[in-house]
Write a protein that binds this DNA or RNA. Structure first.
Lengths: 206, 206, 206, 206
DNA sequence: GATGAATGAGCGTTCATTCAT
DNA sequence: AATGAATGAACGCTCATTCAT
């Protein structure tokens, strides 16, 4: 089980390169993420990258997937199931805002270039990314489902709800990136939760 | 003010080229939208495009902007103010779904590659696009505002509400493009409206 | 039927590039024939080559094929059928020596790198080259066949004879290129003819 | 003179590597013979190859030279001088066909890419290969010379004859590799001998 | 001696942009 | 105004060679 010395070094190199990749993506976008720039940023020769990644596409996917996976892991770790279901949803949304906000540059690129999360049935890399996304949505959906079962929220399709909740979170960040608001992040968080949970319409007492 | 003959011809050329550009974007994505292909599609020489657009970027921006502008115009034309405010919102959302769905290919590219709608304060092209987007959001916000004033919906920040409504519409289409759902478009429309208007939480009679 | 001005220019460019290609092949071999060097030699930008040839392979094949085709055409034009069949063979061999000798550098590369004339059933370029070679062998074979029919030479498989005759011609030049002989070209010519026509064995009067 | 233990080991390593090199050449051609692949095939690290060979070129030359040398040695060992001279020639030709045919893959590459046997006066590697080739031709020439002296064949330049005989053998194999014939190897052997010994021309009893 | 990770020059190819016609 | 041939910087990728371990 113990990783050998070489494996450690290799892991370190891979991380270094993936970190550099994310930094470059954050700084220049996907379009501007060239192998040359990643190599420069990682202080490594161009050829070295090809020792660890077969193609540029594989490199970018690995960088995105890793960032994505870490985000999901962190999120899943959160929230004891004993909580009030609505509080749990709130807690997850707030945590998600924190996490996304702290990786600004890289996530800005990912959020703004969702073509990368595009789905191309033939391409194994895109299939992997899509599956990861589904894992994340499933997690959100399971939280919603429990809340529905416990009567805390209205019975809607949990998958649809999960997708929309994610869109609202991402959308809020997009809105900030586009400088369409100057309200503090916390205010946006609460507004999203309010909107998602209560909707807009004034409730006729039903 | 009267457009001269030359200006008419020029306008015709420009819109031919922009149409071709959108067709190419729809067919091959932003990545695959090369000047060569646009020229081919517009049945015009490559050099001709540079008579009307300074750079490739300017061309793409113009194509997107124009498509966007047409969409807004069509939407704004809709809906007499006399309607029930909630019905008006519903009507606008439904129309938006129709419009987006009927321009599938081009909009698929725009939706999936929103990096293009990025905001780069230094870049006049991106500033223009942002302003257009704001115009659209202002229109949606004005509709929401009226509904608020008439007590039809809860008093929230209309700009935020407008942004989120748009995100939910776009998100729904994105979800379809990612093949995460196979429900009919109409069902998705109604789910979005339901969610947007009523929220998720079971309403304690307030 | 008249070639337009553009076609003439295009043809000129193509010739220029093919000539340059052959010069580079002659100077640096197939291995050393890079697009950069051909572009330099043709005094043309790298990209220009790709206006006329889809790939490097296509360029090299065109250069070889053209040189080859010209050689065959020149050869076929030769020799009135009325001649004495053996004299005709001699005349063809002598002409072939002249032609090959005058294109030394390029042909040196082709002769020395017959891998290029290799046959790869899947590759249309290699198929074309092979067919051209067969055309050439067929021509030689037809000459041999006529000589056989007229009783001037022994009845052997004309295709085999043609191939071997060619090998002997090429071999002679190869021998000179390897500097394994310093006899004058004419002497080699006659020796080849002598060997090809009479063989080595002292003839028991049969 | 006695080889030390180290020298033995070293010799073993070297021939392992050269064998691997020939296998790789046979499988992927000269073009495809990379140091990586040779190292893999020899189950040796890439760097190890550079302990024994200064450059890739030196490695390939050594591999070819060694294969060539073995062929010559085997051939020279053959044939008691007491035989009938013409029979000896026949026997040598037949043996050569056998040997070449049994090393098909490697020799296919060498035959088809004779640029490698090129002669570049400045390059010591090519000089060595050329000298080896001359040794081989000298051997063939000595056989021819003896036959001439014993009146078995016509008095021609033995060096020329040797070169041409070799060309005819190689050519026959080339013809098979190009798939220009489907006759059995034995038939080709006899045709070559027939042609080489008797020539084409119907013999006027001289 | 043996290793293989690291290097970087060099390759074939693309494509936005220019400019002589 | 319109053309499209020409350009060349930039790209992703390969591979012979080096060198710290």
């Amino acid at each position: 089980m113990a990783a050998s010395r070489e494996e450690l070094i290799k892991g370190y190199r891979v991380s270094e390169i993936l970190d550099a990749t994310r930094r470059v993506i954050g700084r220049r976008g996907f379009e501007g993420a060239t192998i040359d720039r990643v190599a420069d940023e990682a202080k490594v020769a161009k050829g070295t990258i090809y020792l660890y990644f077969a193609t540029k596409e594989a490199l970018l996917h690995a960088a995105v997937t890793e960032g994505f996976r870490a985000n999901i892991a962190e999120l899943s770790a959160n929230g004891a199931a004993t909580e009030n279901p609505v509080e749990r949803i709130k807690s997850i949304v707030r945590q998600q805002f924190r996490q996304l906000d702290s990786n600004k540059d890289f996530l800005k690129a990912v959020i703004l270039d969702s073509s990368f999360v595009n789905f191309n049935a033939g391409d194994p890399l895109s299939v992997e990314l899509r599956e990861l996304f589904i894992t994340y949505l499933d997690f959100l959906a399971s939280v919603l489902k429990e809340a529905i079962e416990r009567g805390a929220i209205r019975p809607i399709d949990p998958q649809l709800g999960a997708f929309m909740l994610n869109e609202m979170i991402i959308g809020t960040l997009r809105r900030r990136l586009l400088q369409l608001t100057d309200s503090p992040l916390e205010a946006d968080e609460e507004a999203v939760l309010e909107l998602f949970l209560k909707g807009l319409q004034t409730a006729p007492c039903n």
